[in-house]
Write a protein that binds this DNA or RNA. Structure first.
Lengths: 215, 215
DNA sequence: TAGATTGTTAATCGATTAACAATC
DNA sequence: TAGATTGTTAATCGATTAACAATC
């Protein structure tokens, strides 16, 4: 039986676990472990064995009974799957406090994303730079994004202007948006919106402390 | 009937939606809308009505048929619920690239969290400061955390040392940990671990672009 | 062959959504 | 009273976990 119909889909949660596996596998590699089993990963990351096994099955077919996966093979299968090999260019909009923090963060490139330019509505901010990235005025966005064929947009503007920026990005042919503004954006369904909200995470922490510590 | 048995629990997902509601409500307040209904929030944030209504019911009892909630009342109910009124002190460990970005970010205080000190293992880094926060050597952590009665720890160290730092924090009486390292931490179950992994979010974006754009 | 590990099919669990009753 | 909106109980959906068969 051929596996023509076997569309291996993967849930968003599973997708988000993959970088953890990757990290663990790299530490295995550093320890000269040439093979790594799902059980080892599960134990190392304190996850359920079956979950790990299922996640890996969606990403690689190099698993062999009794031996597990070749550590390096699995690393490259996951990186391949996530598209870390082909670097994706990104632009960031909103060079305020958060935006500048993101611009100066160096960890994105090893995850296959490279910020190529930043934009800000404030004419005084435009023309400066942050973290080695030039900041342009908003008017240049559409032209530049189109010419550079950028596929990822990072929104770091205030809530009020986030939807507007989103529309602009969609119009410029962006495929995925990393949204740091505290709003749910409206976009065509083939555009992926990944919401990242520090306030949302803080809510979880704050609530827990409040509960445990009392008021 | 008294509501003694009515332990209103709330899911983590619901908890994370509350800051979005808060943001919407504040914009309502700015527009002088004295009342806001669940349906208005749902429409504004493009969420399901019932979901919003259920979330709000867990947080406030000020909803009235036909009128909805008093905008300001609901704001303060949510802030009360999340513990945004009582500021919680936090310490940050690891003043590297990411750590410094977090230290210089100004948005945490309005979510009820205040970073009071940072620590780093590197003796050269200790003694300096970032974003107006002093950076201390690791040896001072236990003493300072205990004396300041800090309840939140922020881990921004490399994956390899994250568990070690976690243990140290737990030993110092911390109640909740915001973990930026790409590992799942092992801690007593009454300690809340909130994982924040930029790489995990990037994986989702990267995969989508890869799928749409092809390789 | 026995044992470890993979990978799949079925059961469970939790969150979201739908239907409805209650109330101002 | 009629209508809008709340809040609850039941149905659906999706992800996780458990049980098991396949394989080296």
């Amino acid at each position: 039986m051929e596996n023509i119909n076997k569309f291996q889909t993967i849930s968003k949660q599973a997708l988000q676990r993959l970088p953890y596996y990757l990290n663990f596998l790299k530490s295995q590699k550093a320890k000269k472990q040439s093979n790594t089993s799902a059980s080892m990963i599960a134990e190392g990351l304190r996850l359920n064995q079956v979950q790990v096994r299922k996640d890996l099955a969606a990403v690689s077919s190099g698993g062999r009974p009794k031996t597990g996966y070749g550590t390096e093979d699995l690393i490259s299968d996951i990186e391949q799957f996530l598209g870390y090999n082909n670097t994706h260019d990104a632009i960031l909009i909103g060079a305020g406090n958060l935006g500048r923090s993101l611009l100066s963060y160096k960890g994105f490139e090893e995850c296959g994303m490279k910020i190529v330019a930043a934009f800000d509505i404030d004419k005084h901010v435009a023309g400066t730079e942050a973290g080695g990235h030039p900041i342009f005025p908003m008017e240049k966005l559409e032209d530049l994004a189109g010419r550079l064929k950028v596929k990822i947009g990072i929104i770091a503007v205030p809530a009020e202007s986030a939807q507007e920026v989103c529309d602009l990005l969609v119009g410029s042919g962006i495929l995925a948006i990393w949204n740091f503004a505290p709003v749910y954006l409206d976009a065509p369904e083939d555009i992926l919106i990944q919401n990242e909200n520090m306030a949302a995470s803080l809510a979880v922490l704050s609530k827990h402390v409040e509960e445990k510590f009392g008021r």
